[in-house]
Every structure is written in C-alpha cells, then in structure tokens.
Design a binder for these strands. Structure first.
Lengths: 321, 321
DNA sequence: TTGTAAGCGTTATCAA
DNA sequence: TTGATAACGCTTACAA
C-alpha cells in the first residue's frame, strides 16, 4: 500500500509537494506535478480514507437508516437519494439495525437520513444536540440540526376517503398500520376528520400492522360479517394486496361487493385484478428531496421542512355503490 | 466533541491511562478506571472512528455491493449477511453504483461482498492483488484473497429439466437471462447437458433479461406459435411471473397448455395461481455463508469455495403432459 | 499502576 | 515553487 511518503521518496520531493500535486493545487509546477502524478499512478496510490477523514473531519459519506432491508418499496427511494448525494460528491451507504447507529456519532458518516423506527426520537435529538445533521422521514421532530421530509399523509387519506364517499359508499372499514407508525397515525387522524363531517357514515376500524398477512386477516373479518357492499381503506397497499389474496379465494368480488383502496401505489398494484385504487407519490422524489435537504443542512444552510405531495389513483377495485 | 485528551484533563491522568481504561485494560486500577469512565459518560465521549481506523488499520465494517437497490429479492440475503457480520462485531453497509467502489481501496471497509455486475472481474482482481478481501456471489474468480459463494445453478437447472421430462414433456422452451449473467450462463449450460442426453426433446431457446417484461415477451412468442402442450423453463421466477401476467390474458391455461417452471422461488410464487414450480434455496443462508467466508478470509484463514444447494419445488404450473 | 512518546497517513500553515 | 512541521484522535510499546 503506497502512501504519499513513498511517492515523495520516488519523486525526490517532500510529502507536502506530493499532497499539493495530488490535490491539483496550482502552487506546484506543471512539470513536477505531472511527474508526481505519474509515479502515483505507477505505485497504484490510493489515498487512505481514515487519514483524510481524521484531518478533514468529514467523510463525504451519507448514511441511510432503514428498519429492515426487505420491501421492494425502498428501491426507488434509495435510487433518488443516491442521485442526490452523488451529484455533490458524496457516497450513500444503507444501514440497518441498532449496531449501525453508532456510525453517526463516531463520525463515520457526515449525516443521516432516517426512516427507521428502531431509532428513538430521544436518540436522534441527542445526536442533533451533538451537532450531527439529520433528515427524518418517519416522524415529526424539531431541532435546528434536523430537517423533516414527510409525506402529506393527511392529504392522501383525505383524498381516499372523500373519493369513496363520492362514489356513494356509506359503510367504511379502515385497516390501520402498527400503533408506532407515524404514517399510520397521521392517515388515521385525517380519516377521522373526514368522517366527523359525515355523520351518516358507518365506520369500523380494524387493527393491522402494514404487512400483507394483517390485510388478509382483516379480509377474513370483513368477509365473515359481510351483509352489504362496503368500502375498505387499507392504510397501505401491502395490506390491500393481502386482502386481495384472501378475498380471491371467496365468492366476494372486489370492486363490486367489497371496494378497496390502498396507500403508496406500490408497483404490484399495476398487476392486481381489478386494479387497486391507491394514493400515489414519487418515491424517487421523496428520496431525492431528503438527500438534498441533508446536504443543505451539512453545508450550514437554513432549511424549511418539506412535504411530498400525493395524488389519487383511481382503480376498478373501488367502484360506485 | 469530547476526546480522550479532554477526559484526561478532567481526570487528572494521562491520555494513555484514559485509553486503557476505555478499552477495559486490566492494567489500570478499578478506582481510576471507574472515575475515567464516569467522566467519559458525563462528557458524552464517543471515540472518533477515523482516528481509531487510522491507528488500527481496520474499520470493522463490511460492504455489500449490489447492482441496484430494487428487488425484494435482496431482503433475506442481506438479513443473512447482517447476522453473520454482527455476530463478530462488524457492521454491514450496503452500497450501489460505481462511485462507491472506491470505499474498498480507500480502506473505508475491511472487505466486500460482491453481487454486482458493474464490478469488472479485472477490477476485483486488482483489489485482491492489493490485499483486499472479497467474496463474490456472481462470478467464478480465483485468487487467494477472493472466496466464491455460488448457487448450485447446474444442479438446479438439471432438476428443473429432469422434472419436466419425467412429467412427459417433449417440447421445451428455455427463456434465458442476460448474456452477461453468470447464473444464466451456468443454468443454460446445465440445460444443454440434459437435453444432449435426450435427443427426442424439442428445444427452443428464447432470449430474456431476467426482468418481468422479457418473460411477458417470451409468453407472446410462445402463445403465437402454440400448437401443442409445451414446457417452459424460465431461468428465473421474475420472468416466469411476467409470462403469467401475459398468459392470463389469453385462452392458454398455465399448467395444462403451457407448463412453466422458474428459478429462485421468490416470495410471490406462493401467491401465483396455479403455484409456480421453481428451484428453491435459502437466500438467508446464502448471505450468511458469504459473510462468514469473508470474515474467515479477513481473519487470515484459508477457505474453500462454497456452494448453496438447491431443491425442486413442485407446483401446479408444471403438470404432466 | 501510570506516564511518555512514537506513529498511523493525510492536510495545511508557515518559512525558506 | 517547494519543504519542514504541527496537527487530527487514537493505540500501544516502553519507561518510570
């Protein structure tokens, strides 16, 4: 492993000259610079990150923290983030699990994007207090070193419920996410605001956990109590798909007997029969925006919290009553 | 940001005593050690990774390189790897894209697990020559610093073809993966070995790219030329699902007219109607083994290349002729 | 049991 | 234009 000392020896110059040449400083002659660069290449010189990080107090690496690695959902999101950070010469690494949390305070990364329930808000605030820069995508947290980039959950849930009311539905099931989920809580809150304005609406809440299986479970419950057409708002698509999988094995027809709408507009919804109505937003844009906000924070700029806007995607799964 | 110097000053001891205490060395008195630890906690001391990495010449971080972040396929794989490295006190970070390749030679990570076509084999060999430790999961590469953990593609493809021959099929379509894919090449090679032993078999090859859409395209081609029942071996499940999506829109019945078998046994195959026959293997185990091999390599142990064994999963999509 | 000091590979200040 | 040198924060051999 060649270092600048080796290069300096070979070139017959001092290490500082080598450093300048390597970093393209105009202070060194083109001639010597060329000679040094040639030797560097010849020795397969690669700068040592630890040494540089120690000196410069930055790593040019951004960490993304996810609850787990599963879920095709993350693909576009991470793609968006990668674009954002790469453009500014940063690298992106994806982390998961408690153990990896230390990467931030140990200064292995220059900042973090958090979409990970295993971080407590207290922990995040502690890091922020220590001067670390953060973007959160899954909670409401206010601190000068933390920026929020959140989905407009309330708008989405409102769109969904108003859509089914417009279609004439008067009986509504809502399948919730896990209690700890910020997105679930926000969506549910918006649902309740809408139904408060519609006293004629019959409203039944079923507890879910954002996973397929809980959607299927909710489907069983709904099928058992089936007496008349009803609308179901699954607070994410995953659960809606789980419900599909179950209902398909019954006599109940989706979009005629039971009407379903989801949230997230994940890729498989394109393949569902009938097409699942959902709430759409650009996952890539969400990721891109989060990364941009973090870079601004790191650069020391003031940044306002941001929202990602959502739209209604109609589908045959949610028909008129 | 407190450092050991600050602690030393507070405690009225030297920095080496602090370092020893922090690292639990028995050389320092329990009393002073306790005092130092207390002060460290009070000052919210967190060791600086760059400094430690520089000194110890290791980061205790393993990098996984993936072609892209999409594909729910990776979930279990990464979960397995994480388990493996965490157990030994390492952290796992997931990287993608050319830019992140530098993390290895810059010594930001202690080793890499590669499942990423954007790495050329020459590049990997260069790193191996420089002393970096690697595990490859997507190619055949021999070097003392590189270990292979590969799927037993040949066994899988052989199982698949023999299964359909046993069921009486005499007309076989094979939808291949992209030309550059090692897995595709190996699977195809095994297919050809089997059909060489079965001269009565009618064999048609269709080029695919491992994506859903190419499976659908192959489905169109097969449907157009449909005259008699035939078997199709899609070299991965993704393409098989794409073919399903198309064939469902036609009169052709899967498992009766066109018989399909895939490879990978991805999660959605459980939900397909009729169930897709496939070749199964534990993704988690694959990841776990890869990480274990890498850690052995880093520890300086000799390691043999490893294989992940596969099994046939029967399904109604592949019936008797 | 504790302290001194060298060294890890860079960058950057100051002097030459 | 180039060189000597301190500094980044930590570990560890050696001295006290």
């Amino acid at each position: 492993m060649a270092n600048i000392k080796d290069i300096a020896k070979q070139a017959g110059v001092s290490i500082s000259t080598v450093s300048y040449a390597l970093n393209g400083s105009p202070k060194v002659t083109d001639e010597t610079s060329a000679r040094i660069l040639a030797i560097a290449k010849e020795l397969h010189y690669i700068p040592n990150a630890a040494a540089r990080n120690l000196k410069k107090q930055e790593t040019k690496i951004i960490g993304v923290f996810l609850t787990d690695f599963s879920g095709s959902f993350y693909g576009h999101l991470l793609q968006g983030m990668k674009e954002g950070v790469n453009q500014s010469g940063y690298d992106l690494v994806v982390c998961s699990g408690k153990q990896s949390h230390q990467l931030l305070p140990q200064r292995m990364i220059d900042g973090a994007i958090v979409l990970d329930e295993t971080f407590s808000s207290e922990e995040l605030l502690r890091y922020a207090d220590l001067g670390h820069k953060l973007v959160v995508m899954d909670r409401d947290l206010n601190h000068p070193n933390i920026n929020q980039v959140l989905l407009d959950n309330k708008a989405g849930a409102t769109l969904a419920v108003e859509h089914l009311i417009e279609l004439g539905h008067r009986k509504l099931y809502v399948v919730t996410g896990p209690k700890g989920s910020f997105d679930s809580r926000q969506r549910l809150q918006a649902v309740k605001q809408v139904i408060d304005r519609h006293p004629d609406l019959q409203y039944i809440e079923i507890e879910g956990d954002f996973n397929k299986s809980s959607g299927a479970l909710a489907g069983i419950q709904i099928a058992q109590g089936y007496s008349e057409p009803a609308a179901v708002f699954c607070l994410n698509d995953e659960m809606a798909i789980g419900m599909y999988d179950y209902l398909i094995t019954t006599d109940i027809r989706i979009g005629e007997d039971i009407h379903i709408i989801g949230f997230d507009n994940i890729e498989v919804t394109q393949y569902t029969q009938p097409r699942l109505a959902s709430i759409d937003y650009s996952k890539q844009k969400w990721g891109l925006l989060a990364s941009e906000q973090l870079l601004k924070l790191i650069a020391g700029n003031d940044v306002e919290h941001e929202h990602i806007y959502v739209t209604l995607v109609k589908g045959k799964s949610m028909g008129a009553v």
